[in-house]
Write a protein that binds this DNA or RNA. Structure first.
Length: 767
DNA sequence: ATCAATACTTAGCACCATGGAG
DNA sequence: CTCCATGGTGCTAAGTATTGAT
């Protein structure tokens, strides 16, 4: 069998015929099923046809849903249920149809495989609501049937055109394609910071020379020795040009390419598990390239080699047809392991570990795991008091192991530290709780601790915090000589010892559960503080603030975007200018009616607060910006005209524009000299001016709020906690309770991932 | 019991589509 | 309507935890 998800257009006629036929056929589902089990040869085709059917149904379902939610808004709950019921009924009939379909489909050209298979198609994946059955069956078996079409391999290497070459010591180098590819990897990264790292250059050079040697060395007898003498710029320029060309394609061409790509990927994007069609996550084999480790990774710059079908293991059910490997190749291994949830795997050459092709985040298995994770964290609620009381008591235990265990648990619980497993020499030096060393913790009496270490992804954890007095004492003991820099703080501990101990409190309790628990608990507490008032935007601001609290707890960071500093400066200047404009209008008011000042002196106070110098700076800035604006406009317009083969704008046009700016500059100058504001006729009215001031004030508060939010968020990543730590049902309950559309909180992909939460939690749900 | 291998979750970053401001 | 910033998504590295072998 090969699972084929034909696009609707190509098979529409056929389908509609089938639908009509099937409408007259009404047989019981059970019978159909049993017949299907016995059937053999045609099953592929049955499956295939049914797939299409499912797809059509899914589409219908979607359409109906969309329509419902549009028409009925939030009150569509009942309608939805009804809709899906109707559809379920219809989908039961699918099985009937399939029977009928079999002959038709097997004769059609749709299916290429003749392998035997038997699969019950129970439901379309969108109908399957695993969270509505709470049967706690054995979860070591992940599936009974699993079939898929394998993986997509990266395209073969396309050698560079002969005029594009690597240069060594000024001389062009003829490289064998294998080595040229590696040189190309480096060239493509020339603009990144990575290539500046000495370790990156060294590792690259080593692997590059190795590949070169493997393939017979350079072909024009250039001997490459020094990295310094390599010149990649010609290759980099070539890539740049190619990129530009791609950008230049017409929108239609782009669309066409995208469509073709999607069409090609379709068969790999979906798989079939227990009769349901579900999405595959990463169905593409990782392309070769230069390893980009995070932080000071000793293997940075090494060549990540190309993966061939021979390196790849496929996991399918025993009866599943084996996908065709790429021409001239064989699969490394075919496995039938239903205790795991990967579809395919291969070994990667940098760290010698496995890479897996797995289900997408919206899949049943991932959903169940996710659900279980949060349920486990919720279960900790019932044990946390005991755990805390225990570690508090054990802080004074006479046994060092117990004390270490108590302190470690405290740190994991209170500061949400990770477990901190041991790492080998050829990885970046990062730590978590158990692997903390002497130098990562500084003690400041009476009870302040400064944590400073690199955690996962080499993200710095820096916190100056007050801790429990006994924790402080213990840390002091752990740091006593002979301990010193380089020594483990918890020398008797590692995650497996700690976790084993934690299991005593609750089955399945491990260090990471505390992170989930505390993150979700914090979110719940923060959400509880939000009053149900104000606009959706205001509520979202609060929600994000709550989210941020969690992200900070978990130390989820992001690097500030390259434009951040400038964009903050711009926003600040913008606010200053708005303030100035406001003052200007207020002056104009006084010009019209001096008595206004007596009526409300406070209102006009800020006029005096603005110094002459400040004002002049603002003038200059505005004028400067206006000039730039017109110059840019002029250039851009001419570029466009050149491209369209039109006549360029005359310089006089630019002069004309700039003259306008000159006028403005003069006006500001006059206003500054005389103190008389020149507002336009329509604004020579106290009421109108006051309105303007009010509008400006609104804009200022808005801009200031946005700026503050931007600043607060610049180094904090909210996404990670939203995706991994905060029980999605909290967000769902928040939305339902506060009348916030779920789209504001979860993106489309997150809504799919968290469908179980969206459909199971109501406004009263609590973590 | 211990260690290595395997499997699965969590993480930040690059890229690009999109939508709001001008 | 255009432009640019921003958020969403894909990618894959880097963790944690469990399983399996000795």
């Amino acid at each position: 069998m090969s699972i084929k998800l034909k696009d609707d257009s190509s098979s529409e006629d056929e389908e509609s015929t089938l639908v009509t036929v099937s409408k007259h056929k009404k047989s019981s589902k059970k019978i159909t099923k049993s017949v299907k089990r016995e059937s053999s040869d045609e099953d592929d085709d049955i499956l295939h046809a049914a797939r299409k059917k499912q797809k059509r149904l899914k589409k219908d379902l979607k359409d109906t849903k969309t329509r419902n939610s549009h028409e009925n808004g939030k009150s569509s709950h009942k309608t939805k249920k009804k809709t899906s019921k109707t559809i379920k009924k219809e989908s039961e009939n699918i099985d009937d149809e399939d029977k009928t379909l079999a002959d038709v489909a097997s004769q059609s050209q749709l299916s290429s495989s003749t392998k035997a298979s038997s699969v019950d198609i129970k439901e379309s994946s969108e109908d399957f609501k695993w969270w509505e059955n709470n049967d706690k069956e054995d979860d070591s078996i992940k599936w009974t049937t699993l079939r898929h079409n394998g993986v997509i391999f990266p395209p073969e290497y396309q050698p560079l055109p002969s005029h594009v070459k690597l240069y060594y010591d000024g001389k062009p180098v003829d490289l064998p394609p294998q080595a040229e590819e590696v040189a190309g990897f480096f060239a493509a990264m020339l603009e990144t910071d990575h290539v500046k790292l000495p370790i990156f250059q060294k590792n690259f050079m080593h692997d590059f020379l190795e590949v070169l040697k493997e393939n017979g060395g350079t072909r024009n007898n250039v001997e490459i020795k020094d990295f310094e003498k390599l010149d990649f710029t010609k290759i980099a320029e070539y890539f740049q040009v190619q990129k530009e060309q791609k950008k230049q394609l017409s929108p239609q061409e782009k669309k066409q390419l995208k469509l073709e790509k999607e069409e090609f990927e379709k068969p790999y994007k979906f798989c079939e598990i227990d009769g349901r069609i579900e999405q595959v996550g990463n169905f593409r084999i990782e392309p070769p390239g230069l390893f980009r480790g995070r932080g000071a990774h000793p293997k940075n710059g090494k060549l990540k080699r190309r993966v061939y079908p021979e390196d790849v293991v496929l996991n399918l059910d025993k009866n599943a047809p084996i996908p065709e490997p790429p021409k001239g190749h064989k699969w490394g291994e075919i496995r039938h392991d239903n205790t795991v949830q990967w579809l395919s795997m291969w070994r990667e050459n940098i760290t010698n570990s496995f890479k897996y092709v797995r289900f997408a985040a919206n899949s049943t298995l991932k959903g169940i795991s996710d659900f279980k994770k949060f349920e486990k964290a919720r279960m900790l609620k019932d044990h946390i008091d005991k755990v805390r009381a225990d570690y508090k008591a054990k802080l004074k235990s006479p046994k060092t192991l117990d004390r270490q265990m108590a302190v470690a648990t405290y740190l994991i619980d209170v500061f949400a530290l990770r477990a901190g497993g041991e790492k080998s020499e050829d990885e970046a030096d990062t730590v978590g709780c158990c692997s903390l060393r002497y130098e990562h913790v500084t003690l400041k009496p009476p009870n302040t601790v400064i944590f400073d270490f690199l955690g996962k992804d080499s993200i710095r954890y820096y916190q100056e915090v007050e801790v429990d007095a006994q924790v402080f004492k213990n840390l002091k003991i752990f740091k006593r000589p002979p301990s010193g820099p380089g020594h483990q703080l918890f020398d008797r501990l590692d995650p497996s010892i700690l976790n084993k101990h934690l299991q005593n409190y609750m089955p399945g309790l491990t260090a990471k559960v505390f992170r989930t628990y505390n993150a979700s608990k914090t979110m719940q507490d923060q959400l509880d503080l939000i009053p149900n008032e104000g606009t959706v935007a205001e509520k979202m601001l609060r929600y994000n603030a709550a989210n941020r609290t969690v992200a900070i707890l978990c130390n989820h960071q992001r690097t500030v975007t390259k434009g951040h500093a400038t964009s903050v400066q711009k926003a600040t200047e913008r606010i200053e200018e708005l303030e100035w404009q406001k003052v200007r209008y207020k002056r104009a008011i006084l010009q019209l009616d001096k008595s206004e000042r007596k009526k409300d002196p406070n209102y006009f106070k800020e006029i005096d607060d603005l110094s002459k110098e400040e004002e002049l700076t603002i003038h200059k800035r505005i004028i400067e910006r206006e000039r730039e604006k017109y110059k840019r406009k002029f250039e851009r317009e001419n570029e466009k005209r050149k491209f369209d083969k039109e006549e360029a704008l005359p310089d006089s046009q630019l002069m004309e524009w700039l003259a306008k700016v000159d006028d403005l500059e003069k006006q500001y100058q006059r206003e500054s000299d005389t103190g008389i504001i020149e507002v336009r006729e329509s604004l020579k009215n106290v009421e109108k001016l006051k309105q303007q001031v009010e509008r400006l004030e609104k804009r200022i508060t808005n801009a200031s709020l946005q700026l503050k939010d931007k600043e607060d968020n610049s180094t904090v990543a909210l996404g990670t906690s939203k995706i991994n730590y905060i029980d999605p049902r909290l967000s769902v309950a928040f939305c339902k309770k506060f009348d916030v559309p779920i789209e504001k909180v979860f993106t489309k992909t997150l809504r799919e991932k968290f469908r179980w939460a969206i459909e199971s939690a109501d406004e009263n749900w609590r973590f």
